[in-house]
């Protein structure tokens, strides 16, 4: 191996150490625990953060983080940024509407948990769907995220106008029974979703990594959040979901996520296999 190659190998080793130390610092100082996130993605996001924050090394970023509280929200912004759409994967929402809603109708009151709600796209999709199906009045929606910034974005419900065309098409393909334009007005350079959509919503700071179970839910929707976790952390989150669901309650995951690698897979049955909608087993 020539010297340049050896150096390349060494700098990778050093960078790995720096990243581990940075994540330890973030956990010890601020109790945000990213240590069991899927490594490749977290490394990529940290590299972006380091570049955009103008830090020469991860060690420099760590120092800034430890001594300057204002660095925390900035770094979290990079680590938790999520890009979703309303009614992303319309067939998922169609399956909720056609297969899950008929079961939910049998409950006098409903609790729904949107875990990792990010900017709120999935939340508003479900609230609109429940309103169309006449279930909104008996439902409380819990929208949780670890990022305060994400919760604020979600509770504003304002989306860039150039995204609305895609949302509208998705909504139609999901079997929407109304027009998406019924739910927003345009202004402030964006589409402002009606605040009545938030009448039944509780926003809350909750971590799937460190926090405990939520109240008895009939449906948990958590899409494209688990892909950012390693297997161990996925396992914890899925155990948390099982324990937060009523018997016979539903868990909806992202279209490329699955329970295959989880120790809790036995606790669930496939309900709509292609859409990754699972049902908690009885007993």
């Amino acid at each position: 191996m020539d010297a340049a190659l050896r150096d390349a190998g060494l700098s990778d080793v050093i960078e790995d150490i720096e990243i581990r130390l940075l994540l330890e610092a973030l956990n010890l100082r601020y109790h945000y625990d990213f240590r069991n996130y899927a490594q490749a993605s977290i490394r990529r996001r940290l590299k972006q953060a380091r570049q955009r924050l103008g830090m020469p090394t991860f060690s420099a970023l760590q120092e800034a983080l430890l001594h300057d509280k204002a660095m925390l929200p900035q770094l979290l912004g990079y680590l938790t940024v999520q890009v979703s759409e309303m009614f992303r994967d319309p067939s998922y929402f169609r399956a909720i509407r056609e297969k899950v809603v008929p079961v939910l109708r049998t409950y006098p009151s409903l609790r729904i948990w949107i875990a990792g709600c990010s900017g709120g796209e999935e939340l508003y999709s479900l609230v609109i769907l429940f309103r169309e199906e006449g279930l909104e009045e008996r439902t409380i929606f819990y929208a949780t995220d670890i990022s305060q910034e994400a919760l604020e974005t979600a509770s504003r419900g304002i989306y860039a106008l150039d995204r609305i065309k895609g949302f509208t098409e998705n909504h139609r393909l999901s079997g929407g029974k109304s027009s998406l334009s019924d739910y927003y007005t345009t202004g402030y350079g964006g589409a402002v979703f009606d605040k009545s959509l938030r009448d039944r919503v509780v926003f809350s700071d909750h971590s799937l990594v460190t926090d405990a179970v939520f109240a008895e839910m009939q449906l948990i929707s958590c899409r494209n959040v688990l892909i950012y976790f390693n297997r161990e952390l996925q396992n914890r989150a899925i155990g948390l979901f099982r324990d937060s669901l009523v018997r016979g309650g539903f868990l909806g995951l992202g279209s490329k996520e699955n329970l295959r690698f989880s120790a809790h897979a036995d606790g669930f049955a496939n309900f709509v296999r292609d859409e990754k909608i699972y049902q908690r087993r009885e007993g």
């Binding site: 190998g9 899927a38 490749a40 993605s41 940024v81 999520q82 494209n224 892909i227 950012y228 992202g254």
Partner: peptide, 29 residues
Amino acid sequence: LSLSTDEPVLYSRPSIDVLFESAADSFGD
């Protein structure tokens, strides 16, 4: 293998850069 829904890179998701950079980080030479 890990999937991500991070923003598209050069208008692409999936992105070749993202896969290749992760391979370089994870497997070196």
